[in-house]
Simulated scan of single mutants.
Amino acid sequence: MLNDLENFYLNQPEPNKSCLLALREVILALDENIADAWKYRMPFFYYKNKMFCYLWIDKQTKEPYIGIAKGSEFTHPLLEQGGRSRIKILRIQPDQDLPINDIQVILREAMTFY
Rank of each mutant, 00 (worst) to 15 (best):
R86L: 09
N33F: 04
Y54G: 02
F52R: 08
I92C: 01
L90P: 05
A110E: 00
I57N: 01
L30D: 06
D36Q: 11
E25Y: 01
M1Q: 10
K88F: 10
L90D: 03
M51P: 09
D58H: 00
E6W: 02
T112C: 08
R86H: 14
D4N: 12
K17D: 11
D4M: 06
G82R: 08
L78N: 11
A110R: 03
L30R: 02
F52S: 06
E80S: 10
I100A: 05
L10E: 15
F45I: 03
F113Y: 15
L28W: 06
T75E: 12
K48N: 13
R84I: 05
L10W: 04
L98P: 00
P15L: 03
E14Q: 13
R24H: 04
M51E: 01
A69C: 08
K88D: 13
N101G: 07
E25H: 07
R86C: 05
N33V: 03
R84S: 14
L20W: 00
P43M: 01
L5R: 00
E6G: 04
L79Q: 02
E80F: 04
L107S: 12
T112R: 15
D31H: 12
N11I: 02
D4Y: 06
P13R: 04
I27R: 05
A69V: 15
V105G: 09
F45G: 09
E6T: 07
Y46H: 11
K50T: 02
R91D: 10
Y46C: 05
R91M: 03
L79H: 04
F44N: 11
T61P: 03
L2C: 06
L10K: 12
E109A: 13
N3W: 03
Y47V: 10
I89H: 04
L55Y: 00
Y9T: 07
N33T: 09
E63Q: 13
K59E: 14
A110Q: 03
R24W: 04
T75S: 15
Y46F: 13
K70L: 15
D4A: 07
F45Q: 08
D102M: 05
G82Q: 07
E32M: 05
W38M: 12
A35N: 14
R84H: 15
A37L: 06
Y114R: 11
P64H: 01
T61L: 05
R24D: 14
Q93L: 01
R86D: 07
F113C: 07
R91H: 09
Y9H: 12
C19Y: 01
N3R: 01
V105M: 11
R24Y: 10
L2A: 12
P15A: 06
Q12F: 04
P13E: 13
D102Q: 11
Y114H: 14
R86K: 14
L79E: 05
T61W: 00
M51C: 04
T61M: 10
A35T: 14
Y46K: 08
L21T: 10
K70M: 13
D58I: 00
L20M: 14
I27G: 03
Q104E: 15
K59Q: 07
T112I: 10
L28F: 05
A110G: 03
L98H: 04
I103Q: 13
N16W: 00
R86N: 08
Y9W: 08
A22P: 07
M111W: 05
K17T: 05
N11D: 15
